[in-house]
Design a protein around this nucleic acid. Sequence first.
DNA 1: CATATCGGTTTATTATATGAACCAATGGTT
DNA 2: AACCATTGGTTCATATAATAAACCGATATG
Lengths: 256, 256
Amino acid sequence: MGTTSKALSLLRLFSNSQPEIGLTELSRQSGMNKATVYRLMSDLAEYGFVEQVGADRMYRIGPGIMRLAVLRETTVPLRSIAKEHVRALAEEIGETTHVSQVSGDELSTLTYAYSAKHGTRVTMEDAERLPFHATSSGLAVLTYSKVALVDAILSKPLDKRTSHTMVDPSQIRDELGRISARGYAESVSGFEQDVHSVAAPIFAGGATVCGALAIAAPVGRVNEALRSRMIAAVQERARMITDLMAGAMPVSLDSP
Amino acid sequence: MGTTSKALSLLRLFSNSQPEIGLTELSRQSGMNKATVYRLMSDLAEYGFVEQVGADRMYRIGPGIMRLAVLRETTVPLRSIAKEHVRALAEEIGETTHVSQVSGDELSTLTYAYSAKHGTRVTMEDAERLPFHATSSGLAVLTYSKVALVDAILSKPLDKRTSHTMVDPSQIRDELGRISARGYAESVSGFEQDVHSVAAPIFAGGATVCGALAIAAPVGRVNEALRSRMIAAVQERARMITDLMAGAMPVSLDSP
DNA sequence: CATATCGGTTTATTATATGAACCAATGGTT
DNA sequence: AACCATTGGTTCATATAATAAACCGATATG
């Protein structure tokens, strides 16, 4: 593994549930030597990718990331576009909505919105990594991904998050076929117990999938009427976002 | 220079005016060997920090940055806070406003807002790098920065952007003293000809300066009345942002 | 058709990253 | 207060990984 990869892999350790990490902890979790981690983190800090804070010198993601993020958004404004539509869709349906984004072999939440309609709702977390096999978003993305990615994902052991999580690769491949045919993915309690979600893919530039739009509702609230509204709305919105991203839907999805 | 630093320095080459760069061009601009750049960019691409696009395989900032950015904003929500206030301030004053952020020895635009009040206005660019010595934002930040940073900035040759740009280090140090005394920085045609700007520092967590809020107007429109409104407003808003960032203003600024 | 430029690849050489051991400081615990 | 277990950070001989020149095939340009 190259030195650069090692440095970048350290950044992967930061998450919403672990936004600040100490040197020793980084060393432990990465399996790298403490001295190595120290030097790598120093390099990252020099460029503002991480910063140290507090008396215990914990590391967290630094301000340098923001300049690149702003730059990214001016070129590929997925998040700003998604934010509007996620909000509108949440109000339209009265349930939690979110857009996730694929980056390499990772899928993570980019933005989300709640609806005030009900007292109970599915709650989300920022920048959360979503498993491809256990979420409707993941399945939607996987359906339109390169075979190399699909193979890579399905060849690793799949975490059985709930009793309903699909973990059999061939069963998942079958599901991908069905998703491709009908144009949306669905997951009932596959990621979190009692969460029913539907998702549709978002494409950018030349029919490459770049993420997914999803609606997530408590299982008990999803009757047949709501379910069909969710399915119709998520597909329509995903297409709107795709259009704004100047991407083209794959032919199989172009005509309804 | 370490390998990690080399990889990260490649990311610095991307900017608003140069959002996509080819392999050879990266090699030229970084001064590194083409093979080296190739391997470094491949590493960066593997982690989604850059992506290749189009038939000419140009590189641009990748989606992986966004996950880290979202994570950063949940911990230090400078941009989201700044966005609101920059908008409100632009409407209040009727001129262009922006918030910049310091990262290491770089200062860059984080967000900005225009006012519809006038047909002419100062225009901004996203993620633009601002010179410390030639902008009111830069001077405001420098005033409250560690001496090490001030020395580092002022020891390098300073670009004379316009005929009004201050380039004499000792003269700039004097100016920093005045800014510290009055609590705001001012620049008339120092960065762009015909732009008059005022700026106030923003602090986060323990009185460390993290950026600046600025108002920029066409020189011809800034009479004494507008000028004092700008100065008062920029300081007030900067303090509001600082409060929201849970930072503390240095004592010298606490009482007006 | 020749030349130049592009992204990407190879491989011997060299420089850089590594990790065990070691500090100094901090904070509990006995 | 002495002790132990942590922490972040540092050192330096060693081994590994990065480097650069030359090369390749493709595409574009005169």
